[in-house]
């Protein structure tokens, strides 16, 4: 039975929903608009129509050495996620298809590591990084971000793998596939959608991580989150340029995020809400 909705009610709901949506989106929208203004325009008061100049983008890229943190962000987020997948795919395979009595406990325990507040281990991690020379290096931060997101990666993969019938893997085993063949030719291709959404969500989480990246980098390995945080006082970077830098920092991940809406729910609730 289709719900009979009057046209007027529908128009009313639509207007209300759009109003709320635009209000929520407004800070982002206004930042985008400001980034397209000149500095004088930017502080000249409220105005939704910019002069569409790309001057701020050019300045940010040339003066503030924008590409280095950008590349760091890409390397850290993609690198840590791929690393996590390499460790997590076999683990999730084992837990989904060869469960033992303790599998559930192990999963819960993994989840619990995610609950440890970062600040609780700030002191030792900071000291370890200082003493081992990992401070402000991409490799150190990549490993750290991998560890932080590993539980989510294992969990997401586990929930996806569990939807694959075990008989298909057994069929592969009967067909003469080794474990490597089984994971490479059968499990992974079948789980591609799940792996892709895991990848996507974790790139987003790693990209936006802003505690460890700020604590453990200064310049060389600083990704965008740490780079942007250093503009906490607007001296040296005025409104339009700050907006341009912000837009460049969030644009790639915003687009990725739009594609991963569905997986977001599943990933962040550890499968508790689908």
């Amino acid at each position: 039975m289709a719900r009979a909705v009057t046209r007027n009610a529908r128009i009313g709901w639509t207007i209300a929903a759009w109003a709320v949506a635009l209000l929520i989106f407004f800070p982002i929208l206004y930042t985008i608009i400001t980034s397209l203004k000149s500095e004088q325009e930017a502080i000249a008061g409220f105005d939704l129509i910019p002069s569409f100049t790309l001057e701020s983008y050019q300045t940010v890229q040339s003066q503030n050495n924008y590409w280095r943190p950008f590349m760091n962000s890409v390397i850290l987020s993609v690198g840590s996620t791929l690393l996590a997948l390499v460790v997590a795919i076999p683990a999730a395979w084992a837990m989904a298809f060869s469960p033992t009595k303790r599998t559930k406990d192990i999963l819960m325990w993994m989840l619990s590591t995610k609950m440890m507040p970062a600040v609780a281990v700030l002191v030792p991690i900071y000291l370890i990084f200082l003493r081992t020379g990992l401070m402000d290096t991409r490799i150190g931060l990549t490993i750290l971000l991998m560890l932080i997101n590993l539980p989510i990666v294992v969990w997401m993969l586990y929930t996806y793998f569990r939807e694959i019938p075990g008989e298909i893997l057994e069929a592969a085993r009967m067909d003469g596939a080794s474990l490597r063949d089984e994971i490479l030719y059968v499990l992974t291709p079948m789980a591609i959608p799940g792996i892709a959404s895991t990848l996507l969500l974790n790139i987003i989480l790693a990209w936006n991580e802003a505690f460890w990246t700020i604590q453990l980098t200064t310049t060389k390995a600083a990704p965008l989150s740490a780079f942007i945080a250093s503009f906490s006082s607007p001296q040296g970077l005025f409104w339009a340029k700050l907006s341009a830098a912000s837009v460049m920092a969030i644009a790639p991940i915003l687009v990725l995020g739009w594609f991963s809406q569905k997986q977001l729910v599943r990933g962040l609730t550890f499968g508790a809400v689908k």
Binding site: E167, M174, D175
Partner: peptide, 20 residues
């Protein structure tokens, strides 16, 4: 191992590889 026994199996759910 199953692979070494030279037997073939047909499953109730067919267990075809859906991506091939």
């Amino acid at each position: 191992s199953p692979a070494k026994r030279g037997l073939a199996m047909v499953f109730q759910s067919y267990a075809l590889y859906p991506h091939m």
